[in-house]
Design a protein around this nucleic acid. Sequence first.
DNA 1: CGGTATCCTCTCTGATACTG
DNA 2: CAGTATCAGAGAGGATACCG
Lengths: 119, 119
Amino acid sequence: MCPKENAAQIQSQIRALQDTIYVIGGKWKLPIIHSICKGNKRFTDIQHSIPGITKRMLSRSLKELEDNKLIVRNVDPDFTATIEYEFTQYALEYGKLILDMIRWGENHHKVITGKGTKR
Amino acid sequence: MCPKENAAQIQSQIRALQDTIYVIGGKWKLPIIHSICKGNKRFTDIQHSIPGITKRMLSRSLKELEDNKLIVRNVDPDFTATIEYEFTQYALEYGKLILDMIRWGENHHKVITGKGTKR
DNA sequence: CGGTATCCTCTCTGATACTG
DNA sequence: CAGTATCAGAGAGGATACCG
């Protein structure tokens, strides 16, 4: 598991890993990703699909996801300034990793609660 | 990317994913995992191998990793109460996912800084 | 050596009101 | 509709001192 690289390279790997976690970390990023995944594209639609989220947190989280190029914000000025959020191709490539993380998390839950098959 | 399951199941998947992130999230978990990976087993050795960490945070983080069964705490009462931390077999199975996350994080860094091949 | 206890700070999140 | 501004609370993390 532990690669045999020099110290500087490993520090950079740890940072890479922390970045990976940061991008989808926090309280709302994953529910938002899921909501867009389900077909919601507009700010208010996304907000209503996630119980408990405020405009403030939705706005901030969308901006961070956009900064990380996982979603794009499309403004259509012709049709009364409709704004839509969509996944980037890049985000779709992230999908497999997310599914792996889900699988690990589900198994982990069983392990911790003592109903697991492993350990 | 988005599975076609019912709502309750998806909520549980999102929770599973948030758990996955939480287990290795925070400021010190990954450096600690790396330090043990490199062969450090004792509290003080781990502490000295991670610049800036305090006893308090090391203690808390080790306890959380132990609660999540990624490491075990072995007390040897015969030899002046030596205490050693080690990975569980379970943690080693986590390794592949961590490597995938590192790879994504490294590529992500290139994408965000504009030097990436993707996007 | 391997921790705990206490206090403090700083960031993240929530509530609410306002805006083009 | 799609946000921004402001303020307040909760929680993560840091500094330091103490303990078996």
